[in-house]
């Protein structure tokens, strides 16, 4: 069965860039969300074994998504993908339970290395 993954970003362009950077032979079922509220809904629907999460979004941002996931059981491996490259942001998302922080623009090599490191691929 394909692995359900969720790409969360308010920018359609950013979602496209990320999807294009995923390993081409990775057997996944890709869902997309444009804000945190949609992301939580998709997560509850079982569509996010792995979640690629942007931080800056309207309505509900990435930090709030991580906090909400922590209230639930956090049955998702969350990889934060952000243009905010300051170390404080990285430390904050890691302390909230993200497994990795990947900076924008996403590089296929970096993404590949992170997925390998956590045994996802």
């Amino acid at each position: 069965m394909s692995l359900p993954i969720l790409v969360v970003d308010d920018s359609a362009m950013a979602r496209k860039m990320l999807i294009k950077s995923l390993p081409p032979d990775w057997d996944v079922d890709i869902s997309q969300a444009a804000n945190g509220i949609e992301a939580i809904a998709a997560y509850r629907a079982g569509k996010a074994a792995v979640m690629f999460l942007d931080l800056t979004m309207p309505d509900m941002d990435g930090f709030q998504v991580l906090e909400a996931l922590r209230q639930e059981e956090l049955n998702s491996m969350v990889i934060v993908v952000s243009a905010d490259i300051q170390t404080v942001a990285q430390e904050r998302v890691m302390s909230l339970g993200a497994i990795a922080f990947v900076k924008k623009p996403v590089s296929a090599d970096v993404l590949n290395a992170v997925l390998k490191q956590y045994g996802v691929i």
Partner: peptide, 26 residues
């Protein structure tokens, strides 16, 4: 949307530079 994403990526770098300048999270 593309221009917005491009500028957001660029601003992430600007934020990091300003954070160094101001010694605060920006």
């Amino acid at each position: 949307d593309a221009l917005q994403e491009l500028t957001n990526i660029a601003m992430g770098q600007a934020g990091a530079s300003l954070a160094t300048l101001l010694d605060e999270f920006v």
